[in-house]
Structures are given as structure tokens and as C-alpha cells.
Design a protein around this nucleic acid. Structure first.
Length: 455
RNA sequence: GAGGUUGUAGCUCAGUUGGUUAGAGCGUCUGAUUGUGGUUCAGAAGGUCGUGGGUUCGAGACCCAUCAUCCUCCCCA
């Protein structure tokens, strides 16, 4: 058979992995700095835990896992019956009890619901694991990709929104990626829906205006019309998303447009507070008020964030927001949540495009011991152990070969130093240490090899 | 789920209106050079032309199917 991997998945080579780990490490240490604790959940969840949480479109994209033992003769009749339902588009337990994780938020909610008695509230956790979506792969879209989430459960304080935004700022500053944090508030969108036709129009409106930057105002209006909004209502939406200016100007204009709608005014107050505190702690102007930002996930109820890289052609590289009822779907009421997510795979692609990965993260082995024969190899092994004990990564060439070959091996693996201990050096108790980039070499005592290598 | 792109050596790609034995660069291996690389020179290996079928005297090229890939839409990170 021909070797292959599933569509939309990737193998990661050493060079790629080192860069990916650079991103992971940056995010992890920032999360830790803000007091978030690690959590891992299984790749598999019960299908019913996931179904219905991401909308109809989401349900279709969940990878379901076929149950084992369907070929058991005693269960054949019920298996056939259950499979008939699958053909009608109704997934069921008899065929697929388990499914692959689709995001990290729902498993987090499930975990909080299961352990609420034991958790210190507010519970702040971070999670960096792969998720799977049966989407069609394309640029910036994979079937297996990593999310890095930080969420807070059990607190309605806006302090968390501010700190989460500061986390975004700090991480991307570290990664040398310029960003804009788009911010909006579901309460504002709620108010907009009330101003044109009622709260039940909210989804119709948000789905359409969320596409504004992609398809333009005219297409948005068309979509609104096709979703049954009147011309009057459409013009209200239009004036709403046409609001322009600085963040403050936008908020002022919106305030007068709201006509005293208290829900909407709440939303404005929240954004103002977050903006103000954010600015007090970060010098740059990367927060952008964006009333067309809606985000597909309908469980958001307050602040919503979306992060875009400036100067790179890519959709959002992170997003998040507040949801009043995190665990209600799992039977635990009254726990609110707020969180953000980093899309590592897209961040990687952006950093690659912008060429901002630091050079120094590519170092693996620091020194290569040349192999000139079995006797010498046996002599060199303890010297390598001595370097490793000093924290210097080194390896011994696997066989006695021509120097040419051993040099080329070192070059291809970007190993900066080579060490030669041959028969002559064994007699004199010395070693030749050569720095490949400059060609300089010196003969040193065997106990002092480590002193002459800077990793 | 809908539409399109591409598929030739390990990698990047040529290959004319269908015509003899499918090429190049890079990489690999051998030698010049048995303890000092990067340069140079000489040579070699490496191909079910994605897969299956069809048209034709003749297919890498044309037709059909299929798989993979990348991209667009829907949706999303």
C-alpha cells in the first residue's frame, strides 16, 4: 500500500515543531503568568456532549466514531434499525456513542459541570490540545488543529475581559505579530435586534453583518432582505454598521442611536470600561471597536473578541467572549464564563508569511563527536556523557566514516560544533573542538570540552 | 455539502499540434581526497508520468472515472 495521512492532517518535522513549540511555550507561559491552571480533557467525548452545541452546521462537522461490535450477530437487528436513522441524518447512540472533540470550550463546560463542587471559584484554566473538524481543508483551515484556550468560570467581573485582552497583547508582542483586537458586545447586537423587528431577529442580523468586511455592505443588505427584514429595518442595520471614527466617536454615535435602550447602553458601558483599562496598561492602540463583529457561536452574551493579524492575509487567529450560562446545558445553573482562544496553526502560517520566527529556536544538537573507530568511540562515549551532564546536547557519529561525511551530517543538522578525539588525542588526553561557522579550532583538555562550547 | 486547480526522479519543475530510448536544477551515492567540511571536477544511481479504463498504428499529452492536492463558497481557528 501507499503511505498516506488523512486529508487535512499533517506530520510536523523537527524544524516546524521547534517553531510551533516556540508559539506554544509563549502562550503557555503567558497563561501561567496570569494565574491560569492547565487542564487536559480526552480527545473523545460522548457524542451527546457535543451535539447541538455548535448549531446545525457544527453538528455536521463533528467527527463521529463508529461503535465497536456492530457486527455482533445478536445485535444485528437493532444495529440495522439504528443505521436507518443515520441515513436519515439522525445520529444516534446505537451507531456512534463517541465523537472527536470539536473545540475546547464545551469540554471545559462539561468539566466544570462535573467538578463544580471541587473547583476553587472563579476557576481559571488553560488548555492547549488538538481539535478536529470534518471541514474541507484549505488555506488556514485544517481538519486537525490546535487551540489554546484560557477561560474563567464563575465570575462576572470585567477584570477578566481586561486581563484576557492583555494576554492577547502580550503573547503577540512576544511573537512579533502585529494585531488588532476587534471588540463588540452581544448586548449591543441585542439592542440592535430590538430596534429592528424584535429579539428573535438577532441571529438573522448577526449572521449577515458578521460578513461585512468580507462581502461588503450591499451584499449584507441583500442577505438581510432575503432573511425577511423590511427596508426600514435594513436601513437601521445599515446606519448601525456604518458608524465610523475613533473608538470613542463610534461609541458616542451609537449611544445617541440607541434611544435609551438600557441593554445596549450596558454593552457600551462595558466596552468603554474595558477600553479604558486596557489603554492604561498597554501603550499601543490595537483595540478596535467593531459593531459588525458578531461571531457565529450563539452562546456568547456579553463581550466578544476577535484577533486579526495586521499585514497578513488570514482570517481570525483568535477569538473569544463572555457567556452567561456556561454549564446550563449540563444541568448546572448560574455559572458564567469568559474566555479566549488562540489558533496556533493560523498563527504559525502568519508568522511564516511575515518571517518573524527568531533564528535561535532552531538549535538542536550543539556538538557532534566524530567517530574514527571502535576504540575511539568507546573512549568518546564517557566524554559525551560528561557534556550531557553539563546540559550540552551532543551526539556521536554512528560509525567510523570519512570526515567529509561526518562534516556534512553536522552541517545538515545545523550542529554548531564538532569534536574530534582520535587515537592521537586519546594519547595526549586532548580533544579538538571546531566551530563550524568560523572554521576556528583549538586543542583542549578532554575535561574542558564543555568550557569551549557555547550553546 | 457545491464549484474550480494541479498531479512527471527524494525536492522544485520543463516536456511543442499525440511520434523513436521522458529531461534539467538541487539533493543522494562513488571517486579525485584513508584525520578537517562548505568550493571545484569526473562519474553513477534514481521514473508503475497519481490510479484504473478508453480513443489511436502510437498517449506523459486527448476522453471518462477515481484518488490525492491546493484554492473558493458555506462555516470557522
Amino acid at each position: 500500500m501507499k503511505a498516506s495521512i488523512p486529508q487535512g492532517t499533517r506530520d510536523f518535522s523537527a524544524a516546524v515543531l521547534r517553531r510551533r513549540n516556540f508559539i506554544f511555550n509563549t502562550i503557555r507561559s503567558t497563561f501561567e503568568t496570569y494565574g491560569f491552571e492547565p487542564l487536559e480533557t480526552p480527545a473523545l467525548e460522548n457524542t451527546e456532549t457535543l451535539l447541538g452545541k455548535y448549531g446545525d452546521e457544527g453538528d455536521k462537522l463533528i467527527f463521529k466514531i463508529l461503535n465497536n461490535g456492530l457486527d455482533n450477530p445478536t445485535k444485528q437487528a437493532s444495529a440495522r434499525e439504528d443505521f436507518e436513522k443515520v441515513l436519515e441524518g439522525k445520529t444516534n447512540k446505537g451507531i456512534t456513542e463517541r465523537a472527536l472533540r470539536y473545540d475546547l470550550t464545551i469540554p471545559f463546560a462539561r468539566y466544570v459541570a462535573m467538578n463544580q463542587g471541587q473547583l476553587t471559584m472563579p476557576f481559571k484554566r488553560y488548555q492547549m490540545q488538538p481539535v478536529w473538524r470534518a471541514d474541507r481543508p484549505q488555506r488556514g483551515r485544517y481538519r486537525e488543529f490546535y487551540q489554546c484556550d484560557a477561560d474563567v468560570a464563575g465570575s462576572s467581573s470585567l477584570l477578566h475581559e481586561i486581563e484576557l485582552a492583555l494576554i492577547y497583547s502580550s503573547v503577540f508582542k512576544h511573537l512579533r505579530v502585529g494585531i488588532e483586537i476587534h471588540i463588540n458586545n452581544r448586548k449591543i447586537l441585542h439592542a440592535l435586534a430590538m430596534l429592528c423587528g424584535g429579539e428573535d431577529r438577532m441571529t438573522d442580523i448577526t449572521v449577515a453583518i458578521d460578513k461585512l468586511d468580507k462581502i461588503g455592505i450591499e451584499k449584507v443588505k441583500e442577505e438581510l432582505a432575503s432573511r425577511g427584514l423590511t427596508n426600514n429595518q435594513i436601513s437601521v442595520v445599515e446606519s448601525f454598521i456604518s458608524i465610523a471614527g475613533t473608538n470613542e466617536e463610534k461609541l458616542d454615535q451609537l449611544m445617541s442611536m440607541l434611544n435609551g435602550n438600557t441593554i445596549g447602553e450596558d454593552g457600551i458601558r462595558e466596552i468603554r470600561y474595558i477600553l479604558e483599562q486596557y489603554k492604561n496598561n498597554v501603550s499601543s492602540e490595537e483595540m478596535v471597536v467593531d459593531f459588525s463583529l458578531a461571531r457565529g457561536l450563539n452562546y456568547y452574551t456579553g463581550t466578544i473578541f476577535e484577533v486579526k493579524a495586521t499585514g497578513a492575509q488570514m482570517g481570525s487567529i483568535g477569538g473569544g467572549g463572555r457567556y452567561d450560562d456556561l454549564t446550563g446545558l449540563f444541568g448546572v445553573k448560574g455559572i458564567e464564563g469568559v474566555g479566549i482562544s488562540f489558533g496556533v496553526d493560523r498563527i504559525y502560517d502568519v508568522m511564516e508569511e511575515l518571517n518573524v520566527f527568531p533564528e535561535h529556536i532552531q538549535t538542536g544538537t550543539t556538538a557532534l563527536f566524530f567517530n574514527t573507530g571502535e576504540t575511539e568511540q568507546n573512549h568518546v562515549l564517557p566524554l559525551a556523557q560528561q557534556l550531557r551532564a553539563q546540559g550540552i546536547a551532543c551526539e556521536i557519529y554512528h560509525e567510523a566514516a570519512k570526515f567529509d561525511k561526518q562534516f556534512k551530517y553536522a552541517e545538515r543538522k545545523s550542529i554548531p560544533y564538532i569534536v574530534i578525539v582520535g587515537s592521537k588525542e586519546i594519547l595526549s588526553g586532548t580533544a579538538i573542538v571546531k566551530k563550524l561557522s568560523t572554521g576556528e579550532q583549538q586543542e583542549v583538555k578532554q575535561e574542558e570540552i564543555g568550557l569551549n562550547i557555547k550553546s
